[in-house]
Design a protein around this nucleic acid. Structure first.
Length: 426
RNA sequence: GUGGGUGUAGCUCAGCUGGUAGAGCGCUGCGUUGUGGUCGCAGAUGCCGCGGGUUCAAGUCCCGUCACUCACCCCA
């Protein structure tokens, strides 16, 4: 026996039936954007390594130690995308979308890659649904983006997630605050590694998980108290639009994100039931990114939602399965004439949007029924010799168990399945 | 990159102080003519992760190795 090949470390499979729920979650997370004027953008899965170094920031962990980078046959450095925003911005600039009507509102979905040690809810290939809005400073866009994510989660029935919100200030107010924070951190008793972080990106020290560190940060200065007038007004406005959108949030002035480009509004959705990982989505505003990547000086805001983790959260809350079966009618045909007729019938139904499947390999009626049950088919159509003689079929409702005779035409079936006095199929 | 845990039937796992393997679920069939779910009965399936060592004897002890997993760092 030859040895089987395993998937590379840390990449998840979604075999059926769980794949049904995966698709359902991805659809639910994208749906709000499609109803809010966001256009879909299809993007490459690998990009020039430089894009992420310049876009995401060299000092971030994502860039410095988690990228899948390789050299292609033309000696170019290529990286499997670790996040979505940089690629969207690159595509906006390259396709001149920023020269058209503003703001540009886009959504995307697909796999991202980070070479981390895998654990629960953390994969080397992860799936996200994201949106980006470029070319607007309006606080209403901040609120809209946050609301899309929020209502994507609520539409799945999720209840236990929390939205954390803060403002990280701008190029006017953040640098002075940064100095004040660094000065404060200088008075704390910190280990070498944390001191280095304080020098490089002092904000990150604020969300250190260790109690010994947190204890010293009780009186740390917070960005939220040092916002300039513009940022303070912007933040206040975002909050009132959020209230108007029916979004509930929790202010968390210690919220810090791992990517360097964020400014002003910053947010993160967390869920308590995912093991050590809690983030199911996050994002924020970025004022300098477009310009940093060679485009017009437009600001943007966006989010990335973790499809894998959202599915885990739904499972943890007992919301799954969302999809019990994928066919509307299961056909059992006995004898060659009946099988031929059934194939024609199914083709007609499929063309008209009804999902159907049939029993193959001439199994016994009993085992075919069993199969229908396992496929969770709501209806079973049986065609045997008796039925063929009268051009009819037996239609069994698998929920109620009742069975009746219908003409064996697609029209009769569709009329019956969709008739208002019965449970409609869709 | 650093640390911990676990590898036994398709799945979840049991197997005490060494004596060549078990349960539940699932799967297949049967309970008479062409009808699923419930119930009853019968049945199939294991290089006990891999390699080496100790021993009369290893799923069980020792060493190594690989895989998976959880956590740290960080993030979706």
């Amino acid at each position: 026996m030859v040895s089987a090949i395993n998937a590379p470390k840390g990449v998840p499979d979604y075999p059926p039936p769980r794949s049904r729920d995966f698709l359902y979650v991805r659809q639910a997370l994208a749906e709000p954007a499609t109803r809010a004027g966001y256009e879909y953008i299809e993007l490459p899965i690998f990009e020039s390594t430089d894009l992420f170094i310049r876009g995401v920031g060299e000092s971030t962990d994502v860039v410095s130690k988690e990228m899948y980078t390789f050299t292609d046959r033309g000696d170019r450095s290529i990286t499997l995308r670790p996040e979505g925003t940089a690629g969207v911005i690159r595509a906006i600039i390259e396709n001149r979308l920023d020269k058209g009507p503003l703001p540009v509102k886009l959504w995307y979905a697909g796999p991202f890659f980070r070479a981390e040690r895998p654990q629960q809810g953390r994969y080397r290939q992860l799936q996200q649904v994201g949106v980006e809005v470029v070319g607007s400073d309006d606080p209403a866009t901040d609120a809209e983006v946050i609301s899309l994510a929020y209502h994507g989660f609520t539409s799945l029935g999720l209840q236990r997630f929390v939205l954390n919100l803060t403002s990280l200030g701008c190029s006017t107010c953040r640098p002075p605050y940064r100095l004040i924070l660094q000065e404060f951190l200088g008075t704390c008793d910190l280990d070498q590694e944390t001191r280095e972080r304080a020098a490089l990106n002092p904000l990150r020290v604020l969300d250190d998980k260790r109690e010994t560190v947190q204890a010293q940060l009780t009186h740390a200065p917070l960005m939220i108290d040092f916002l300039c007038l513009d940022c303070a007004e912007h933040y206040a406005s975002v909050r009132s639009y959020l209230s108007a959108s029916g979004v509930q949030w929790q202010e968390n002035p210690r919220l810090v994100r791992g990517l360097d480009y964020y400014t002003r509004t910053t947010f993160e959705f967390v869920h308590p039931d995912l093991g050590a990982q809690s983030g199911i989505g996050g994002g924020g505003r970025y004022d300098g990114l477009m310009a940093d990547l060679g485009g017009a000086s437009l600001s943007g805001i966006g989010f990335g939602l973790g499809t894998d983790r959202t599915l885990l959260a739904c499972e943890a809350e007992g919301l799954t399965p969302f999809v019990r079966g994928i066919i509307d009618i299961y056909f059992i045909a006995i004898g060659e004439p009946a099988r031929l007729h059934t194939v024609a019938l199914m083709q007609s139904l499929r063309t008209q949007g009804i999902s159907c499947d049939m029993s193959f390999d001439s199994r016994s009626l009993k085992s075919a029924m069993k199969n229908a049950d396992r496929l969770a088919a709501p209806f079973v159509a049986i065609l045997g010799d008796h039925e063929m003689q009268s051009n009819s079929l037996q239609l069994k409702n698998m929920t109620t168990g009742e069975q009746e005779v219908l003409p064996s035409t697609s029209q009769a079936l569709i009329g019956h399945l969709l008739s208002p006095d019965r449970k409609a199929l869709r």
